[in-house]
Design a binder for these strands. Structure first.
Length: 119
DNA sequence: GCGGTGACTGACA
DNA sequence: CTGTCAGCCACCG
């Protein structure tokens, strides 16, 4: 039996990651590391980035995935950077200096940074 | 097998 | 705030 108890194959890991990304609701964001954690792959943040880069799924809300501090991972001004900002804005989020900021009402939540759904 | 390269991250200086 | 570094893992030459 090739299968093992945990996520072993590339396909399984990828599926788990994509699943986690799709689970992020509109108006919320999650860091690469958070997604990895949700996918059952703690510490595999870079893997998340790779999967997203390789994925061509238009349905994927990849724009809701940011750096651990709410930072957009692309070079400021780049095509993808602007694309992500546009989408996040469309989700009702506020982006300043390449970083997602909370609504003016709860400025303190910035410390938490991640508003990914939990449960 | 080895070393470089990231859509990463937390710790430090 | 910026920059460096050590972990991290899949992929590529």
């Amino acid at each position: 039996m090739v299968a093992t108890a945990l996520l072993t194959t590339v396909a399984e890991r990828r599926a788990a990651i994509l699943r986690a990304v799709k689970a992020v609701p509109r108006g919320a964001i999650a860091s690469y590391g958070e997604i990895a954690l949700r996918a059952g792959l703690p510490g595999r943040a870079r893997l998340v980035g790779q999967v997203l880069r390789d994925s061509s799924d238009r349905r994927l809300p990849w724009h809701r995935v940011t750096g651990a501090q709410g930072r957009i991972a692309f070079p400021a001004g780049s095509q993808l950077f602007r694309e992500q900002v546009r989408r996040l804005t469309g989700d009702g989020l506020q982006v300043e200096r390449g970083r997602v900021v909370r609504s003016h009402q709860n400025p303190h939540d910035i410390d938490r940074l991640l508003w990914a759904s939990r449960d």
